[in-house]
Computed example of a mutant assay.
Amino acid sequence: GLRIAHLIESDGPGGAERMLANVATRLQAAGAWNLAILPADGEGWLTRELVGTGVAIEYFRLDRPVSGKLARWLVATLRRHQITVAHSHEFTMAVYGSWAARRARMGHVITMHGSRYYAHRLRRRLALRLAVASSAWLVAVSQTLASHLSRDLWIRHSRIRTIPNGVALAAVERSSLRDELGLRPGHRLMLAVGNLYPVKGHGYLLDAFGILARRFPQLHLAIAGRGELESALRARAEELGVGCRFHLLGLRSDIANILAAADLFVQPSVSEGLPLALLEAMMVRRPIVASAVGEIPIALADGAAGLLVKPADPPALAAAVARLLTNVHEAEQLAEAAGRRAAAEYALPTMVERYAALYALV
């Protein structure tokens, strides 16, 4: 039977890690045998997600940027578990995994999730190009990323498969978040989900909130995520006079619960691939305002399933939010369109089926 190893260099609660957990656990439940190869010195989030699912786990240590010891350990581990297909995620494991799979004489698949870390140095681009050359397939999670990979690595577009991320999220009828935040009837809540890094654009969202605050005195902003900008965002909220209406929720696992509390969802990123949080908001039919970056315009059907705005533009972001807050009918129509599109294109079972079909071709 099919025995799949999933290799990843990080194990925090990011999109690549969540996608790995979803694919491995779904395929395990369907009868395939799955092994996750994770960093020994990571956060442990992915381990906690996989415990009790039947997915086996092995841990590696990367002692230096170029480690012969790790390469040899990977070959031995893949052979010991009699793996038939190795699936590596992102740059580092793509390079190590392709070499190990070739030495162990098995098929290899690479998925790139959006980070173009590899593109900034010629040496990395060459290393990834060699990894792709010795692999059966290179997968990109978006059409935009596929185009970047083709150009960056000097490879034909036909060598790249595009498999969008998939999500499975059941709508929650009543959220506990509004009580948690002390919101009263009549209060409106806009929500963003994403780690607090500059690329996610939360500073621009907060500035947009400052523009909206006087016109919409019942409006609150909540952001679920963690990261380096937490203190700066709190300080900026105080400067804008909205500190009492600005809520940092930290890392949350109850995404369906917090989405159910939101009157609208905002994705203010300045750079992006295909964010899972956006797909989850679509799946549970939230009105959406999002930056027109990466694969987001395609996901939102060029504005037919959510409003698109120029990135890093607080006035434009504020205007789009105000439009949905004041036009309930349009907001409902966009939310319904988003839900239909998510169910048709971005459902988790569809993503898993596409990967299973790809493994069968290796």
Rank of each mutant, 00 (worst) to 15 (best):
5 A>M: 09
6 H>W: 10
7 L>D: 12
11 D>N: 04
11 D>K: 01
12 G>T: 14
14 G>H: 03
16 A>N: 09
17 E>L: 08
19 M>H: 15
21 A>C: 12
22 N>S: 15
24 A>I: 07
29 A>C: 00
31 G>S: 11
39 P>H: 05
44 G>L: 10
48 R>I: 01
54 G>P: 10
54 G>N: 01
56 A>Y: 02
57 I>H: 03
60 F>G: 05
61 R>C: 09
62 L>E: 02
62 L>G: 00
64 R>Q: 13
65 P>F: 13
66 V>K: 12
67 S>D: 15
71 A>Y: 09
73 W>L: 11
75 V>Y: 00
76 A>K: 15
78 L>C: 12
80 R>W: 00
88 S>L: 03
91 F>R: 06
91 F>A: 07
96 Y>V: 13
98 S>L: 04
98 S>F: 03
100 A>R: 10
101 A>F: 00
101 A>N: 01
103 R>E: 13
104 A>C: 03
104 A>G: 02
112 M>K: 05
112 M>P: 00
118 Y>Q: 04
119 A>E: 12
120 H>C: 02
121 R>F: 10
123 R>L: 14
123 R>E: 15
125 R>D: 05
127 A>S: 04
130 L>R: 11
131 A>M: 03
132 V>Q: 11
133 A>M: 05
133 A>R: 13
136 A>K: 14
141 V>L: 08
144 T>Q: 13
150 S>T: 10
152 D>L: 01
155 I>S: 07
159 R>T: 07
159 R>G: 01
161 R>G: 02
166 G>N: 09
166 G>E: 06
167 V>F: 10
169 L>I: 13
169 L>D: 04
170 A>F: 05
170 A>Q: 15
174 R>G: 07
174 R>A: 14
175 S>V: 02
175 S>E: 05
177 L>H: 00
180 E>C: 14
181 L>D: 06
186 G>C: 07
188 R>L: 15
193 V>Y: 10
196 L>S: 08
203 G>I: 10
204 Y>H: 14
205 L>G: 12
206 L>E: 08
216 F>N: 04
217 P>F: 05
222 A>W: 04
222 A>N: 00
228 E>L: 13
231 S>L: 08
232 A>H: 14
232 A>C: 03
233 L>M: 06
236 R>W: 04
238 E>R: 15
238 E>M: 06
241 G>K: 12
247 H>L: 06
247 H>T: 12
249 L>C: 00
255 I>R: 11
269 S>W: 04
273 G>N: 13
274 L>H: 11
274 L>T: 13
281 A>E: 00
282 M>C: 06
289 V>E: 12
291 S>Y: 13
291 S>D: 02
295 E>F: 11
296 I>S: 02
300 L>H: 02
301 A>I: 04
303 G>N: 05
313 D>L: 01
315 P>N: 11
316 A>D: 09
318 A>E: 07
322 A>N: 07
324 L>E: 02
326 T>E: 15
342 A>P: 06
343 A>Y: 03
344 A>F: 10
349 P>V: 07
351 M>V: 05
354 R>K: 14
356 A>R: 14
359 Y>V: 03
360 A>T: 02
362 V>N: 04
362 V>C: 15
